[in-house]
Amino acid sequence: MLELRLVQGSLLKKVLESIKELVNDANFDCSSTGFSLQAMDSSHVALVALLLRSEGFEHYRCDRNLSMGMNLNNMAKMLKCAGNDDIITIKADDGSDTVTFMFESPTQDKISDFEMKLMDIDSEHLGIPEAEYDAIVRMPSAEFARICKDLSSIGDTVVISVTKEGVKFSTKGDIGAANIVCRQNTTVDKPDDATVIEMKEPVSLQFALRYTNFFTKATPLSSTVTISLSNELPVVVEYKIAEMGYVRFYLAPKIEE
């Protein structure tokens, strides 16, 4: 038996909106730790890892570890039917081939339940090694989204370079080239508006903008984004989910061979 009650239901709505275009089908894993997911896009270029910790739920009952295969587009369709202020409860019985999403309005005057069919998904769980990153950039998530969107109108790939000068995002395309440099800036009114760069080694890596633009669908989840880079390793683009966990996107670089 599984019963997870999330008072801030809008978080789950935003999570689905952030990953449904990158991943079609995925197994949601439920354990005493929390509600999590790890899935690759169909080309195996990017990987998404989601964690919503059990402590973040108002009620969290998960009698045994359970893996539920879901079509993310269908799940998003159902969650779109929940109001932004609704409380969402996820329910499943042991051995059932369905999951139920229950939506309660804040005043309890409207209660809906949506039952979705589960699916069998052959998924490969990958071990993500702990890494020390050469450079970690924290910046406003809206700024990162703007940069990815702007550069994708010029080129298909972005080179992200971190030096002591700052973080540079560059692209080239048929019509020309573009460079955007963000310098460390901690003298801002709100801490979330800061750009903070921690650099051990200079880094320069090239990525497909198509994917970084998918990642920025998570912008509504967090006002800041953390980009962790090491030469010749996948970049990690992390959006923290307030007091609950995170959505992390890993993207394999393009490498000169």
Partner: peptide, 14 residues
């Protein structure tokens, strides 16, 4: 030549 690496060349099945 620039090649797109696969995530599977960095992370392995558990």
């Amino acid at each position: 030549m620039i090649r797109q690496k696969s995530i599977l060349s960095f992370f392995h099945k558990t």
